[in-house]
Design a protein around this nucleic acid. Structure first.
Lengths: 217, 217
DNA sequence: TTTCGCTTAAAACATCCGTTTGAATTTCAA
DNA sequence: TTGAAATTCAAACGGATGTTTTAAGCGAAA
């Protein structure tokens, strides 16, 4: 196994890298669709045009492959984010809030890998898998860190920690809901299809609601 | 099979009813814990102290049993609700909003069957199962109907349908998030344990946020 | 009491799962 | 070119799943 002997220099052939990459790509799609437990190695290797044993050979097993997917997912999400923690503090609270919502609602129209990554996290929010728990135990997810940063721009400095936590969670899950439920919302009775224009309207609505609430609509 | 011959009068012994009820009760717990696909017939029958074949005999299979659970769940949720659509219109918008949030955050402290039912719906919100889709295709879930009713108390009558939908979804999923994530939120780094007092504070916070938004905290 | 249909029971069925095996193949440095 | 390591492959393993089968147990009517 590759992972078991990282100390000595190993010759990694070109085709091996291709197989690894194909497995990760296929695993991302499969885990996004079926979750960790529901995503089978057979389906992954089938889509990657690879042998079943390749998962064990390259990643030490299904769990190792999933860890790799999570690693790529978080890294990509961090890089593709145009909203950094510093950016939050540099802008006005209103702008920061709007940018935050726009950032995490973007997958609604950009149906690419980023959407798959968020779908994996959506699965984990319902039934956290053991690999995922170990993964996020080290550092909290970016979306929560950013949400807390935005929230702190609004709350007074002496706000109770519990209030900060409630409010952060409240804000963090607002865009996650729409991304996770995108497929269901596209069907009746909601029938919400998102394009650039309707995304802007959704960002407007959520920004207004988060900012001034229902009473001031 | 019972379900296959509903027309003619059937003699149903006492133990048969007991087995049926035990299966539904056990299935509710198992499906709430593992979801539809992940909940196994063996585990259900084991907890119900019944034979595996009983599921096929009484319900025609796993899917039939799940349909029965969904039926009981929705009925119970309708009955145990102290907030009816008429109640929403009878109260002030602010009161209606607060009652709505309180209603659907109640499972945080009342860890009974109702909580299991909401957990099942939480599973379905990530990966809707075929039986569930067929089930809700007839009528939208109560929580959405109530949320829309509350939202309409705030929005002007000539508000665009899309805005109403956005706002309804925004409101509906706020309590669902906390109920679904209760177990995770109880662990670090959040460590939120809910009792009657903290539930009241959460209701207060969410009501305030939904009503007046972040800017007026 | 006998009989018949409803109900339960244990076992086996076919299929899927993640993983392991051991040989065949490919790769690359010597 | 050679040989050892890296990689792939088909097959099988042990276990879990939903379902079916076959037989036995049971209650009430004849």
């Amino acid at each position: 196994m590759n992972d078991a002997t990282p100390l000595e220099q190993r010759a990694v052939s070109r085709s091996a890298e291709i197989t690894r990459a194909a497995l990760i790509k296929a695993a991302t799609a499969v885990f996004a669709e079926h979750g960790y437990e529901g995503g089978s190695v057979r389906l992954i290797t089938q889509r990657a045009l690879a042998n079943q044993a390749a998962v064990n050979y390259h990643f030490g097993g299904k769990e190792g492959l999933y860890r790799e997917v999570l690693l790529v997912a978080t890294k990509t999400l961090e890089q593709n984010s145009f909203l950094s923690p510093e950016e939050v503090d540099a802008r006005s609270p209103e702008e920061a809030l709007r940018l935050y919502l726009h950032q995490f609602l973007l997958p609604l129209v950009k149906r690419d890998r980023v959407c798959s990554y968020l779908r994996i996290f959506a699965w984990e929010s319902v039934r956290p898998s053991e690999p995922f728990n170990a993964f996020v135990a080290t550092s909290p997810l970016r979306i929560f860190r950013l949400a807390e940063r935005v929230v702190r721009r609004f709350l007074p400095d002496d706000a109770p920690a519990e209030t900060v936590t409630f409010t952060t969670l409240w804000l963090a899950q607002q865009p996650m809901f729409f991304v996770r439920e995108a497929e269901r919302l596209a069907r009746p009775p909601f029938s919400l299809k998102f394009d650039d224009a309707s995304l802007e309207r959704l960002v407007d609505t959520l920004t207004s609601l988060s900012l001034r609430g229902l009473a001031n609509i």
